[in-house]
């Protein structure tokens, strides 16, 4: 089995993987970071979104072996010095979650959105950009409000 190494949330990690090991399996099962979720088996829901070399990708639709040497940020890597990331804080303040299962992917996708498009996001832009993240609880209203508020505070 090939051995790979990555930097996950700033820490060097390594492990052996099969060709078919998905990035999300490596993150959850090898490294034990279970904040990144698997919500579907069809690459649609976005619960597994992480930042790879600064860009949001679906870790369920990426081979771990192809990411040897990558820098990965998961939801566990966002808070610093005991303080939530502004986007996490905004999801909390705006009730941008109910069951919370989609939230790690939502938060990472939202940070990626701000990184690409800036802090001043219209509701229309936010809704369009969240096309790859599905929530079955909230009806999205409070998620959109959270992203808008979180973006402004980033």
């Amino acid at each position: 089995m090939p051995a790979i190494s990555m930097k996950v949330n700033g820490q060097a990690v390594c492990g052996e993987v099969e060709g078919r090991t998905l990035l999300v399996e490596f993150i959850r099962e090898k490294i034990g970071l279970t904040g990144t979720h698997v919500g579907c088996d069809t690459s649609q829901c976005g619960a597994c979104v992480v930042l790879v070399n600064g860009k949001a990708v679906k870790s369920c639709t990426a081979l771990a072996v192809a990411h040897d040497g990558a820098e990965v940020i998961t939801v566990e890597g966002l808070a610093a010095d005991g303080k939530l990331h502004p986007m996490q804080e905004a999801f909390k303040d705006n009730h941008g979650l109910q069951c919370g299962f989609c939230t790690p992917g939502m938060v990472i996708a939202s940070i990626d959105m701000v990184n690409r498009l800036g802090k001043n996001l219209s509701e229309e832009t936010i809704r369009h950009e969240l096309e790859g993240n599905i929530c079955r609880c909230t009806g999205y209203h409070n998620i959109v409000a959270a992203v808008k508020a979180g973006a402004a505070n980033m």
Binding site: G46, K55, A56, V57, K58, T61, M113, E131, G132
Partner: peptide
């Protein structure tokens, strides 16, 4: 095409 995450790959 797809969504932002798909478009990154």
């Amino acid at each position: 095409i797809g969504d932002p995450h798909v478009r990154h790959k």
